[in-house]
Design a protein around this nucleic acid. Structure first.
Lengths: 234, 234
DNA sequence: GGTCGAATTCGACCAGGGTCGAGACTGGTG
DNA sequence: CACCAGTCTCGACCCTGGTCGAATTCGACC
């Protein structure tokens, strides 16, 4: 399918994205108008809507590009043999640094990822799936090393740590944690305490098995076969 | 300061809010135009901007009104002597029900509360402070009853449970948890496991004391004197 | 090479959030 | 009562995200 037509289409899409990267990075999302974007991309405004349905969608595509960079960065940052706590914190903070490199940019990003509108849900799930997969790897390795209860549910652990990430970044935007250092400390404190456990005595009955299974079904592919046969994906 | 002027101003604000409640409830946020709002409130469009800087701000004021209702509901829902787990789940689910009564409405709400823009941060902190205060009460009572480690940090516990709330609601919007039941189950599972603890062995060093204190400073007023001298605020 | 339908492009347009500035109202002062 | 300064109000306007339909381009098939 390398007709002239398809080629051109890809080219146009690329130039929109390039314009987006340039302008969003330079002036931010809200300050960049579609018209401007079109001009820089060298096309008409309405043409853009042949490629993206909304401005937000352009934004998500833009994020996808940026993410590639972050993930490379993450791999350098995280030592797969370090204690679970350290790995989680390192990974989360790498993500945090990316997201908050530009405050407004990150807010948009978090909003779209954490509370996507229906039409974007797929896209946004896809975006953080990559991140979640990393966390899952960390958890599974940790469990194999015996850092987590043998019978702890890895998916639940994933949710647990992801929850903490959401919390600290939300806290950062809400002004509860003013500095990066506070964010990291809070994150570490939460993870640590959750490893110890909060409670005393009987924590009550086990969650309904059937529903938990329902919840888990879509994540089946996250349990990547065997973690110990690590294939570095460079 | 009950001059004619001030009176009228209050009246105008009130009629804007009334129009907002009517229209937002009837047609949703995005489907309501400022112009319409103005017409229903019986004033000019530009006048609204003398009272609220942006449409979102009107929205938050609207939410504040609605919240009153929710909080009354919550008190009926939550039994202060039930196990911690049950109380947390009941409270969170009450909040969840409120927020998701209308999907679009709730998304807006979550976005503004969890990732507020600078200009709204105060307002949005104020809005969820009331909710957080309830959670804190529950935690403190539980700790007095011995359901939490004596030396567990209540504020950290608050963050912990709030994180779970954020996670499940985000998961709901992301399409990970399709039904209310799944949300509740997930929440319960997370809370439960966090009471037991995830880990085995030494969880690493304690978080930096100084930074934790910094983080906590703004919450001083949440540690409401003594919880056992409960004054019902009807 | 010619022709027709589908895909692509874009100028013109619409709707809605937000601004501006001129005028109307209030209430304090001499 | 006359006047002025500050406050409110609102019609007209601007800007920008998004739509529409006509014109153009492409390429499959004769």
């Amino acid at each position: 399918m390398t007709t002239l037509r398809a080629q051109k289409k890809r080219q146009t899409r690329k130039s929109i994205l390039e314009a987006a990267i340039k302008l969003f990075t330079e002036k931010g999302f809200e300050q960049t108008s579609i018209e401007e974007l079109a001009k820089v991309a060298g096309i008409g405004k309405a043409t853009i809507y042949g490629y993206f349905a909304t401005k937000q969608e352009i934004y998500l595509a833009f994020c996808e590009e940026e993410m590639d960079y972050v993930f490379r960065h993450m791999d350098e940052e995280v030592d797969p043999q370090a204690p679970l706590l350290e790995q989680i914190v390192a990974l989360s903070m790498a993500q945090f640094d990316f997201v908050t490199a530009n405050r407004e940019f990150g807010r948009l990003f978090c909003r779209e990822i954490a509370f996507p509108r229906e039409s974007m849900a797929d896209k946004s799930r896809e975006l953080d799936a990559r991140y979640l997969a990393r966390v899952m790897e960390i958890i599974q390795r940790a469990q194999q090393r015996g850092e987590l209860h043998e019978d702890a549910d890895p998916l639940l652990a994933l949710a647990n740590f992801h929850a903490f990430y959401l919390l600290v970044i939300s806290g950062w935007y809400g002004g509860y944690f003013a500095t990066r250092e506070m964010v990291a400390t809070m994150l570490r404190a939460l993870c640590r305490q959750s490893l110890i456990g909060w409670g005393e005595g009987d924590p009550g009955e086990v969650p309904d098995r059937e529903i938990m299974d329902q919840i888990k079904a879509p994540f089946a592919n996250l349990h990547l076969a065997e973690v110990d046969s690590q294939e570095d994906q460079e």
